[in-house]
Design a binder for these strands. Structure first.
Lengths: 173, 173
DNA sequence: GTCTATATTGCGATAGAC
DNA sequence: GTCTATCGCAATATAGAC
């Protein structure tokens, strides 16, 4: 198993975030993270010297994933806002997992709140540039936030996207 | 100070929820709740025999507040959907505090997830009855969820409501 | 780079005095 | 109805072997 150090660090971050998603901050203990990643607690603490370092690592990875997502949005051209909403409802992608993990952490850690705020600002800027209409951009972002929120609590999202697209069509979108 | 038992229980629930809102689940320890409510840990455990009982008490109180809010929505008549959005952005009310507390708890406790789901269903039913348009009702609810989500992470909500009302006006609302 | 102890702290909960 | 004292346990983190 994995002697590559950066590969082990990624595995530890994956384990941390997936425990955060499933059990919340109380479930993401160092013991549980190490076990899930298949290393000992000592092994974990070699790569991340403290729990704070683990949190920092997760938030930094989120920042990279968001930057990539912003590029993907821009590549969607005319469908940019639709791409945004479709991916807001998505579950199981690396970005989604990091984002939910950050949401869990945000209830206790200001760095996570800040990371979430920066993420939202980046998305708003792209939406607003594309639509040229701040009211519409903010409304669409709030709808995306709403879908993220519901998914966060395990609520079904199947009908939501269709309903939203229906309403957007009435607005000429 | 307060010899009335139900008054003390209310004060304990207030303390629990406000600690949950400010510091998350990790900050809402029995010690901290008791100190904030001005009683000893033993005193707290007389009223709520366990942490689970404290959680249950908070979720039951939420249920009552939501039932009251649904009545207030109905009383708003034509402005029902606007009333819903205005109160979604509100902070500091008892309902708001209970709702955020439930959001914190939901990351770790399924009872809280269930309570949140029931709350959303109640609101959707009222919105849908009023608008007679499920797509619109769900979209408006998602916008409300989005505002709740942002407020949850301390993000400014000042412009949001104005932008949303602007877009709703374009839809004849 | 990964492991097994172990020190230390703080949590939820119980027992029993007042 | 409220208190103090204390037990048992789990969490973060350190020390040092391999």
């Amino acid at each position: 198993m994995a002697r590559n150090p950066t590969e082990t660090k990624e595995r530890l971050l994956d384990a941390f975030e997936s425990l955060l998603d499933e059990f919340g901050t109380a479930g993401a203990t160092l013991d549980a993270v190490a076990a899930k990643a298949g290393v000992s607690k000592g092994g974990l603490l070699y790569h991340f010297g403290s729990k704070a370092a683990l949190i920092k690592g997760s938030l930094e990875r989120l920042e990279h994933l968001v930057a990539e997502d912003v590029e993907a949005m821009k590549a969607a051209g005319d469908r940019l806002h639709l791409y945004y909403l479709e991916t807001s409802a998505e579950i199981g992608t690396p970005l989604d997992q990091s984002l939910i993990a950050a949401g869990r952490l945000a209830q206790e850690h200001d760095e996570a709140k800040t990371a979430l705020r920066k993420t939202r600002e980046a998305w708003f800027d792209v939406l607003n540039d594309h639509l040229g209409d701040p009211a519409l951009a903010m409304t669409i972002q709030l709808i995306g936030d709403g879908m993220y929120f519901n998914q966060n609590f395990g609520l079904s999202q199947d009908e939501a996207l269709g309903h939203v697209k229906n309403v957007l069509a009435r607005l000429g979108l």
